[in-house]
């Protein structure tokens, strides 16, 4: 019956099992999704498709195919999908299926240049789709999602971030982060020097901000999200004070920095140093950092 509604993506007569499924790590991109197997960018997507036809029945079909699809979905542009990759393989020629039938597949030609991502305005996902085409009845379709993670080598140059900022005659600080590029399980180590303090500071925090830009041109949607607020100082420092910073990134759900993914979206990360004074005024300085996925 589900197929009557036209878009049955999970026909339970079809199942897809990737090779090495048992050992493969599973992750989920959003809290309520089912965990999906994880592939590296260069890993071939291979496996077995199994189609079960209930005993005593026969399934007549016009052909069976499997596709590997990489798709970007912009939420504000509902219904529009951009497939940036799509590889199709024929599994069977038209005929009749009875009982249980297994097909091995190999989609190793499918390119997986981007990472799976589930953001506020945009989603990038990978899945394989098995389609059993039938003459008059609608096709049987099974989609199986998987997650792609692209690890990158450590950057060759990784300079510290050092910056002097201030408000004249009021506040003057110099801060320093040990690197400009961090891997996802990295630690941000830094220091804040107070060169001049004329305001009554109450505390200082370091926030990690994710900025997502989806779409292009006039349709671009920007969204900022504070991933974490991490208090690094309590109380008012005096001039000459130097306050250490140490932030473990692995505690947060971060992705690598994405820049111009398929010209559709970007995700950037910023460290925001915020000083709050006793009147709750906030003085802040944002500094972009690059996140990358180190090989595990």
């Amino acid at each position: 019956m589900a197929s009557l509604l036209g878009y049955g993506k999970s026909d339970d007569r079809i199942s897809v099992t990737f090779d090495g499924d048992a050992q493969r790590p599973r992750r989920r991109l959003s809290p309520n999704a089912t965990p999906a197997p994880v592939f590296a960018a260069v890993e071939p997507v291979t496996g077995v498709v199994e189609i079960r036809v209930p005993a005593g029945k026969r399934l007549e079909h016009q052909g069976i195919k499997i596709e590997c699809v990489g798709q970007i979905e912009l939420f504000h542009d509902r219904g529009t999908y951009y497939d940036f990759t799509c590889v199709l393989r024929e599994l069977d020629v038209p005929g009749v299926l009875m009982g249980q039938q297994r097909y091995a597949f190999d989609l190793s030609h499918a390119e997986k240049p981007y990472e799976s991502y589930n953001g506020l305005n945009v989603r990038l996902r990978y899945f394989v789709r098995v389609t059993v085409t039938r003459g008059y009845a609608s096709s049987l379709i099974k989609e199986q999602e998987f997650i792609v993670q692209v690890s990158q080598p450590a950057p060759e140059t990784n300079t510290p971030v050092k910056m002097e900022v201030g408000i004249e005659e009021c506040l003057h600080i110099e801060f320093e982060y040990d690197k400009s590029k961090y891997h996802l399980a990295d630690v941000v180590v830094g220091k804040v020097y107070f060169l001049l303090v004329r305001i009554k500071i109450k505390h200082m925090e370091l926030a990690v901000i994710r900025r997502e830009a989806a779409g292009a041109g006039p349709n671009q949607h920007n969204e900022s999200e504070t991933i974490t607020k991490y208090e690094v100082m309590d109380g008012a420092p005096v001039r000459g004070e130097c306050v250490p910073i140490r932030l473990f990134l692995r505690n947060f759900n971060l992705t690598p920095t994405y820049r111009g993914i398929n010209n559709k979206f970007s995700v950037r990360y910023y460290l925001n140093l915020v000083l709050v004074d006793q009147e709750e005024r906030r003085y802040f300085k944002q500094q972009e950092i690059t996140l990358y996925r180190a090989a595990e």
Binding site: D234, G235, V238, E241, V243
Partner: peptide
């Protein structure tokens, strides 16, 4: 001893 510098409030520190 370095990290403890994070508390600059005199009494709490």
């Amino acid at each position: 001893v370095e990290m403890a510098k994070g508390v600059q409030h005199p009494m709490r520190g």
